[in-house]
Design a protein around this nucleic acid. Structure first.
Length: 876
RNA sequence: GGGCGGUUAGCUCAGCUGGUAGAGCAUCGGUUUUACACGCCGGGUGUCAGAGGUUCAAACCCUCUACCGCCCA
């Protein structure tokens, strides 16, 4: 791997195969035991152990890695801590589905213990796969501190936190309206319910007045089957249509029950007829109304979504949707349907399985959040935590200020078991950090633990401080908490970020992180969300295999404008693979030409102007890149580096250097600049930069141990820089003139130049060897008057005229035609600019600097036009 | 119903505090010049969604409209 020979084509597979192992073996990702430098820490957002990583992970994971690697190189005391998430409901579902597919069994067939064994097996396999993928991406994670949200250690902490919150009175058990997914067979938090527009049907149903059955109140509903559980009809108390009827009794169709018509301010007068049916057991809004008016809650749909309760025999046992039809038929038959209309409305769906959720009443565990939210809001308001981009702050506030208590219990098997025990003798509830042997109230020993587990986000909320060992008051916790940055997607700001802030402040006694870096979603080339069902998901491993992890990382980095979605185009990855090849070959050139006698430092007196020019350019680049990094614009830093390497370093500097290879001073600059480039590149492309670094190594064994470049006052060379810029300008114009006139690229021709600026003329005279080489000149003369020379093709650039002698008269004709075209174009532009200068107030009101610049440009065009005009005369 | 994004070259996207538009890919012409054909040299391409306003000056600020997407209720 270290031999000097470099293949002509860069082989990313070979380069990316082994470095990770060596980095790890050398402990490069593990912070030194003795704190050195300012602590900087990032906790990896733990991927779910549901299978493997998708391309979205590649983004969320590699962005912080870019930051982390630079911080390491800047001498910070860095920790980048990995982990995986048990992902309760998601993982359980995957394993259940698998079980069904492979053996036809359900988890109930296996029983809790055996099923959990199966899940643990799945978890191990999935974790292994994920860790492998992460390593392929090259993330500089400290695996010695790897964590899992459901490890023994985490089970202990979660229990400790649960008990503490219970004792503080923040966790309570209560019977409320919650969302239940009939397919996942568990309750869900409000956040796990996705509202989707569904084409439904609004049925207007007549509820006859008890006193006068010929009259009725009409209510509109999208769920006629819930009529069976109605306990009232409500109207707005100020609604003129119904005001007089409030207090009347209504006959509830199909049931023979009698229900009141009542007034409630929360009723929306605009919806339907303005009268709404009240089904407290199956609708959250109705539940609230029932509480206010002390109404009975009649359960008519059970947990399997079958009809139940005190309803006519014929409906019992029907599924909710079948019952809907049955109810409708009966209502129609009795002439109680006033009308039916198509209606688009929002229906809650399970986030995981997309089943329509069923709101129902059940006894669950809740966490009181209003109080915990207050300091969490303050922390963001007072900029103890900043969001990048800032706009997400507003989203955060909006949610936090209207936060509802969090339903934390789930009817699942895979997760943190709720540490509550029920005494079978006296019904006492015991919540403790250790399993109780006897009931503290009655002394009974018949204690049964709650069957439920905690919402997976409960343990996630504790992640930043528990991974660092808060529970044991560890050194890591004291050193690395609060962490520096949390990088994640906007889709889990509520699920995760908000809850980490609340819990971090409450238990960790400080914000869990200083910055929240929000990245967008990855979409496909057509801007569509990637998903398995659309079959447009991109496997990061496939991309890595084909183009390299470096190319993928660079593509993601350069496209990751904070908060914006990314359309991942494979053609772009391909482009950056080509970039890797370019870097490889530039390095190959440098390495091939090094002789081993190059000084480690730059001899400012001995180096050429070309050397000074690239050092100056590089220094400017370094300054810009650092600013971009510090303002979290990694995409900008990546783009700057890309263009520097390709457009300046390769296209110009390496070409200049070919004339100076005999100079040890220049070779030293070649080595120095290459090293700096590798350092700048390393956070983005860790593999190729390391591979090349090994060939131009300094006293550090690995690139990440070297210092990230910083702006240096000693590398500012404005004069040499200006000289080389002049040279570049004239070379470019000469090349253009050659191409336009179809002079064979390879053919060396005599070149004559005329210059109006004495300073620039000096620049070029000093550097003619570069000019000759880059312009393929047979010999270059700078003359005072071109008109005395043989006629030739002309090129004009600011302060310069170029002449390439004609070979025959056809050349002359072609040249005339071209010059006339250019002359016309300039005339038009000048007229436009002069017009602007003359009228409109531009000259009076624009800042002097702008006008000066404008006039300078105009003058330049005028001169250029004059020169071309004169040439035309000469040739005609 | 409330809120937030987006609409820039054929495609995917940059464009920071307003000063007459850029990248990658694609495309066209030329080229195997001893780091690189995953290359080199050169070129073309845009009423910056539409309308109005502020300004000497607007892709950028303000208002409205259209379309696409997202979040919350």
């Amino acid at each position: 791997m270290l031999e000097k020979d470099m293949e002509k084509a860069y082989d990313h597979l070979q380069t990316e195969s082994d470095w990770y192992r060596r980095w790890q073996e050398n402990g490069l990702f593990t912070p030194a035991p003795e704190p050195a430098g300012i602590p900087f820490s990032i906790i990896l957002p733990p991927p779910n152990v549901t299978g493997s990583l998708h391309i979205g992970h590649a983004l969320t994971l590699s962005l912080p890695d870019i930051i982390v690697r630079r911080k390491k190189m800047q001498g910070f005391h860095v920790l980048w801590l990995p982990g995986v998430d048990h992902a309760g409901i998601a993982t359980q579902m995957v394993v259940e589905k698998n079980l069904k597919k492979e053996t036809g069994q359900t988890k109930e067939d296996l029983g809790r213990e055996k099923f959990l064994q199966l899940v643990w097996g799945w978890k191990d396999a999935s974790e292994q796969k994920i860790v492998g993928q992460i390593k392929k991406l090259g993330l500089a994670l400290d695996w010695s501190r790897m964590k899992f949200t459901l490890s023994d250690e985490m089970q202990r902490v979660v229990r400790k936190v649960f008990v503490a919150l219970y004792r503080e009175g923040r966790i309570y058990q209560g019977t409320y309206m919650v969302n239940r997914c009939p397919s996942c067979k568990t309750v869900l938090s409000d956040l796990e319910v996705e509202h989707k527009e569904v084409q439904g049907r609004l049925t207007y149903i007549r509820y006859p007045l008890l006193r006068d059955p010929k009259r009725w109140v009409v209510v509109a509903t999208t769920r006629p089957e819930t009529l069976l559980g109605d306990v009232a009809v409500a109207v707005h108390p100020k609604d003129a249509r119904y005001k007089k009827l409030i207090g009347q009794e209504l006959r509830l169709p199909l049931t023979g029950r009698t229900i009141p018509l009542l007034g409630d301010e929360d009723v929306d007068r605009e919806f339907g007829t303005g009268a709404v049916k009240v089904t407290p057991a199956h609708d959250p809004a109705d539940f609230k109304i029932a509480l206010k008016h002390n109404l009975e809650k009649i359960v008519v749909i059970d947990e399997q979504t079958r009809m139940t309760g005190p309803i006519p025999e014929k409906f019992i046992g029907l599924d909710r949707f079948a019952c809907r039809q049955a109810v409708l038929e009966d209502l129609r038959a009795q002439g109680l349907v006033e009308k039916e209309e198509e209606y688009v409305h929002n229906v809650g769906h399970c986030q995981r399985c997309e089943t329509v959720v069923e709101p129902n009443i059940s006894k669950q565990w809740f966490l009181k959040t209003a109080e915990l939210a207050q300091p969490a809001i303050a922390a963001v308001r007072d900029n103890e935590i900043t969001f990048i981009p800032d706009k997400w702050k507003k989203v955060y506030f909006n949610w936090m200020e209207n936060i509802q208590d969090w339903c934390i219990s789930r009817q699942l098997w895979w997760g943190h078991r709720i540490p509550a025990f029920y005494c079978q003798d006296c019904q006492e509830v015991v919540v403790d950090e250790t399993d109780p042997e006897r009931c503290p109230t009655c002394g009974g020993s018949r204690l049964v633990q709650d069957e439920d587990v905690l919402d997976t986000w409960f343990s996630s909320a504790l992640w930043p401080f528990t991974t660092l060992g808060w529970q044991d008051d560890s050194a890591d916790f004291r050193t690395f908490y609060p962490t520096s940055i949390m990088a994640t997607g906007f889709d889990i700001i509520f699920f995760w970020v908000a809850r980490m802030i609340m819990m971090g402040l409450h238990f960790g006694k400080a914000v869990p992180f200083r910055e929240v870096l929000i990245n967008g979603l990855i979409r496909d080339e057509k801007g569509q969300k990637m998903s398995k069902t659309r079959n447009n998901a991109v496997d990061p491993l496939e991309i890595i295999r084909e183009y390299g992890a470096d190319a993928l990382r660079f593509t993601l980095a350069v496209q990751a404008v904070p908060g914006m979605d990314i359309s991942l185009s494979v053609s772009r990855v391909k482009g950056y693979k080509a970039f890797a090849n370019k870097i490889w070959n530039a390095s190959r050139f440098v390495v091939m030409n090094l002789k081993g006698d190059e000084a480690a430092t730059i001899d400012a007196g001995a180096i050429s102007d070309a050397d000074r020019w690239i050092l100056h350019e590089l220094n400017t680049l370094v300054e810009k890149v650092n600013i971009s990094f510090d303002e979290y614009r990694m995409y900008e830093a990546a783009d700057l580096i890309y263009h520097f390497i390709w457009d300046e370093y390769c296209d110009w500097y390496l070409e200049f250097s070919k004339s100076d290879l005999a100079s040890p001073a220049t070779r030293a600059v070649l080595k120095f600049t290459l090293r700096r480039i590798l350092q700048l590149l390393h956070p983005f492309m860790p593999f190729i930069s390391e591979e090349i670094y090994q060939r131009v190594k300094g006293d550090k064994d690995f690139l990440i141990q070297t210092e990230f470049p910083a702006f240096s006052k000693d590398l500012v060379f404005p004069e040499a820089h200006a000289a080389m810029e002049t040279l570049k300008k004239v070379v470019a114009e000469t090349r253009k003139t050659r191409t336009e006139n179809r002079i064979e690229p390879n053919k060396k021709v005599p070149i004559f130049l005329k210059c109006d600026s004495p300073a620039e003329r000096l620049h070029l005279e000093k550097h003619l060897k570069y000019f000759d080489f880059l312009s393929r000149s047979l010999g270059t003369e700078i003359v005072a008057d071109l008109s005395v020379l043989p006629r030739g093709f002309r090129g004009v650039s600011q302060n310069w005229e170029i002449l390439l002698p004609f070979v025959d008269d056809q050349d002359r004709q072609r040249e005339l035609q071209r010059l006339r075209g250019e002359h016309d174009k300039l005339a038009k532009l000048i007229a436009q600019m002069e017009g602007k200068l003359a009228g409109g107030g531009f000259a009076d009101k624009a800042p002097a600097e702008v006008i000066l610049n404008f006039k300078k440009n105009l003058q330049e065009y005028i001169e250029k036009k004059a020169k071309i005009g004169k040439t035309i005369d000469d040739l005609s």
